[in-house]
């Protein structure tokens, strides 16, 4: 058996625990990141559990009819905005490894009257989709949580069609600016 030098299971447990126990911040994150017109059509339940770190959808040129993959959909705010943009001829595949997040996304999509959001339980390091099946990948503050980012990015290129696009928000850190006490914290390992 291969030794897990990345402590992948432990890091995933840490992420699972952090996100499973998340409490709503009201809509502080949603209103910090998104303009009111972008939030039109997004149910309050999805706004109140927005956990993103940026607004990549301002730059994502989503076209009608596209198949969008939202990696780490959380409570669904970006999946819902993307679903409105791709329209009924398109679809959003909302991927998360936490069933409770997928339930929130499905519930918010139903509340928004969207039937083009499909929730998928799975790991971004082994995306349960066929090769060349997605036009556009979006993600918000999630790829940094992968213990094996190289593998996750390879999975992205596998599922994207030739010419497919990728537009994500995420964290980066400059290790030279942070003290060892922060860099060695378990949460920093996950990020």
């Amino acid at each position: 058996m291969t030794k897990d030098l990345m402590h992948s299971a432990e890091l995933k447990d840490l992420v699972r625990e952090a996100y499973s126990s998340v409490v709503s911040d009201g809509d502080a994150t949603a209103t910090r990141l998104y303009a009111e017109d972008e939030l039109a059509g997004v149910p309050r339940s999805a706004r109140e559990f927005a956990l993103g770190v940026g607004n990549h959808l301002r730059y994502a040129d989503i076209q009608l009819g596209e198949t969008i993959l939202d990696i780490g959909c959380g409570a669904g705010i970006d999946s819902i905005i993307a679903a409105h943009r791709t329209g009924p001829a398109g679809r959003v595949l909302a991927l998360d490894f936490l069933p409770e997040m997928l339930e929130r996304t499905a519930s918010a999509a139903a509340e928004a009257g969207l039937d083009n959001v499909e929730t998928i339980e799975g790991d971004m390091e082994a995306i349960p989709l066929p090769d060349d099946s997605v036009d556009h990948i979006i993600s918000n503050g999630v790829i940094n949580l992968s213990p094996r980012k190289t593998r996750t990015l390879a999975e992205c290129t596998r599922v994207l069609r030739p010419g497919g696009r990728f537009c994500v928000s995420d964290f980066t850190i400059d290790e030279e600016d942070l003290p060892p006490e922060v860099l060695t914290h378990p949460a920093a390992w996950a990020g």
Binding site: V53, G54, N55, H56, R58, Y59, A60, G141, T157, L160, R161, P162, G163, G164, R165, F166, C167, V168, S169, D170, F171, T172, I173, D174, D177, L178, P179, E181, V182, H185, G191
Partner: peptide, 25 residues
């Protein structure tokens, strides 16, 4: 830990939020 170890004048930026775009050939 961040509040205790990162200088106060650096606490406004402990990370950077980036938006990254790319595509496949």
């Amino acid at each position: 830990v961040i509040r205790k170890t990162v200088p106060t004048d650096k606490q406004h930026q402990v990370a950077t939020s980036v938006v990254i775009k790319a595509h496949l050939a």
